[in-house]
Simulated scan of single mutants.
Amino acid sequence: MNGPIEFSVTAVDRGSDARSGRLVTPHGAVATPAFMPVGTRAAVKAMAPDELWSMGYTMVLANAYHLAIRPGAALIGELGGIARFMGFPGAVLTDSGGFQAMSLAKINSINEEGIRFRSHLDGAPLTLTPESAIEIQQQLGADIMMALDECTPYPAEHRRALMSLELTARWAERSLAARISTTQALFGIIQGSIFEDLRRTSASQITSIGFDGYAAGGLSVGEPKAAMLEMAALSASMMPGGKPRYLMGVGTPADLLAAIAMGFDLFDCVIPTRNARNGCAFTSQGRVSIKQAAHARDSTPLDPACDCRPCRTHSRAYLRHLYLSGEILAARALTEHNLHFYASLMRDCQAAIASGNFKAYAKDASAGWGIDNAAEPVEE
Rank of each mutant, 00 (worst) to 15 (best):
L345C: 09
D298G: 12
G370E: 07
T313F: 00
A68T: 01
N111C: 06
G286E: 07
S355Q: 14
A101P: 04
L229G: 12
R170P: 08
F282S: 09
R170K: 13
A169L: 08
T300M: 12
F195D: 15
P377T: 02
Q350I: 00
L198E: 13
L121C: 04
I353E: 08
Y361W: 15
D372G: 15
A352S: 15
S103M: 03
F211D: 12
A178K: 00
A232W: 07
Y323P: 03
A254H: 09
A305G: 06
A156M: 12
S193Q: 07
L219H: 10
E376H: 14
A375L: 11
R347H: 05
A203K: 05
E135F: 07
G368C: 05
M36S: 00
G263P: 12
S96T: 15
D149R: 08
L67C: 07
S54C: 09
S109H: 03
E376L: 15
F358P: 02
F85W: 15
L345A: 09
V30R: 01
I110F: 06
V12N: 15
R316C: 07
P71S: 08
A169T: 11
A169I: 05
L345W: 06
S193F: 08
A232L: 15
T313C: 04
A215Y: 04
G123A: 12
A293H: 12
G97T: 04
S366H: 02
H340R: 10
V288F: 08
L339Q: 00
L324F: 06
P301M: 09
A73H: 15
P155Q: 05
G222M: 07
I144E: 01
M1L: 11
